[in-house]
Amino acid sequence: MEFTNKRTILISASLLLVLAISQAIFSVLYSAEISFSRQFAWGLEALVFTLLVAFAGSAMVQAKNAQLGWSAIAFSAVLNIVQVSVGLTLFSTFGKVAGTVEGAQPLIGGVVALSFMIYYAAKVLLGLAALVFGLSYFAKGGKAIGSLTALAGAVAMLANGILITFGRDGFLPSGVAGASGMIATLLLAICLISLNRKAD
C-alpha cells in the first residue's frame, strides 16, 4: 500500500478522531467516578500520538499549503507523548515518595504542574491547527464546518494560553481548556476529512 498524500491526511484525521472520542469517553468515565485502567487509557493515547507524529509529519512535508497547520498537529503530538509519559511513569512514583517521605509532597505537585503545562501547550497547538484548517476550509466554500472549526481552535488557543500564562490555579477552570481542546480536535478531524474529500 502506497502512502499517498491523500491517504496520509485521511489517516492523520482518523487518528485525531480516535483521540477526540477516546478523550471524551475517558472524561465521562472520570466524571462519573467509574473506575478504569489509566495505564490502558494513557497507553492507548501515547500509541495513537506516536503514530500521529509520523503521519502528520509526513503530511507536513508533502503539503503544498497549510504547512503551519500540519506542523502544529505534529508537534502537539510530540508534546502529548511527553505529557502522557510523565503521567504514566512519574505520577505514581512521585506519589509514593510524597506519601512516605516527610516534606516531599511538593514533588508530586511539581510533576503534575509540569504535565499540565505540557498538556496546555499541546492544546494551544491543536487549536492553532484547527484555526488554520478551519479558515482554509471556509475559504474553499465549507462555511459551516470551516467557521466552527476555526472558532473552536481560537477558543482552545485562548483558554489554554490563559492557563499557561496564569497557571492552573488561575481564574479559568482547567476543565474549560481541556474541553475546548477536545472539541477543537474533533472538529479539526472532521474538517481535514472534508478538505480531503474536496480535493478529489
Results as ranks from 00 to 15, higher is better:
residue 59 A to Y: 02
residue 82 V to L: 12
residue 166 F to T: 06
residue 38 R to V: 13
residue 103 G to K: 08
residue 123 K to M: 02
residue 7 R to D: 04
residue 97 V to G: 06
residue 71 S to Q: 09
residue 59 A to W: 04
residue 11 I to V: 15
residue 65 N to S: 13
residue 57 G to R: 05
residue 98 A to R: 08
residue 11 I to G: 09
residue 33 E to Q: 15
residue 107 L to H: 14
residue 12 S to I: 10
residue 68 L to A: 08
residue 63 A to Q: 04
residue 78 V to N: 00
residue 177 A to P: 00
residue 106 P to G: 14
residue 71 S to V: 06
residue 138 F to D: 03
residue 32 A to Q: 12
residue 131 L to R: 07
residue 138 F to Y: 14
residue 87 G to L: 03
residue 8 T to Q: 09
residue 42 W to Y: 13
residue 154 A to S: 09
residue 55 F to M: 08
residue 130 A to S: 11
residue 107 L to D: 09
residue 25 I to A: 00
residue 6 K to G: 11
residue 77 A to S: 01
residue 159 A to V: 08
residue 198 K to W: 11
residue 90 L to V: 04
residue 86 V to D: 10
residue 182 M to A: 03
residue 196 N to G: 03
residue 173 P to Q: 02
residue 71 S to N: 10
residue 191 C to P: 02
residue 29 L to P: 00
residue 180 S to V: 03
residue 197 R to C: 05
residue 144 A to P: 00
residue 46 A to M: 13
residue 105 Q to N: 04
residue 63 A to M: 05
residue 190 I to C: 06
residue 119 Y to K: 03
residue 142 G to V: 03
residue 137 Y to K: 06
residue 96 K to P: 00
residue 152 A to S: 12
residue 14 S to G: 15
residue 27 S to H: 12
residue 87 G to T: 02
residue 53 V to H: 02
residue 43 G to V: 09
residue 60 M to F: 10
residue 51 L to C: 13
residue 199 A to M: 10
residue 3 F to T: 12
residue 130 A to R: 04
residue 163 L to G: 00
residue 13 A to I: 05
residue 35 S to R: 12
residue 34 I to N: 01
residue 15 L to S: 08
residue 132 V to D: 08
residue 74 A to L: 09
residue 136 S to H: 03
residue 5 N to M: 13
residue 109 G to H: 15
residue 129 A to E: 02
residue 20 A to L: 01
residue 72 A to P: 04
residue 19 L to I: 13
residue 162 I to V: 15
residue 167 G to Y: 01
residue 189 A to Q: 06
residue 186 L to M: 11
residue 89 T to L: 11
residue 117 M to S: 13
residue 124 V to Q: 11
residue 62 Q to P: 01
residue 45 E to L: 14
residue 119 Y to L: 03
residue 146 G to E: 06
residue 94 F to Q: 07
residue 131 L to M: 14
residue 192 L to P: 02
residue 77 A to G: 01
residue 11 I to F: 14
residue 146 G to H: 04
residue 197 R to H: 15
residue 97 V to A: 13
residue 154 A to Q: 03
residue 195 L to Y: 01
residue 119 Y to N: 11
residue 15 L to R: 09
residue 50 T to A: 12
residue 123 K to A: 02
residue 164 I to P: 05
residue 177 A to M: 04
residue 171 F to W: 15
residue 131 L to C: 03
residue 51 L to W: 15
residue 44 L to G: 15
residue 120 Y to T: 05
residue 146 G to P: 03
residue 169 D to T: 15
residue 159 A to W: 00
residue 109 G to Q: 14
residue 55 F to C: 02
residue 47 L to E: 07
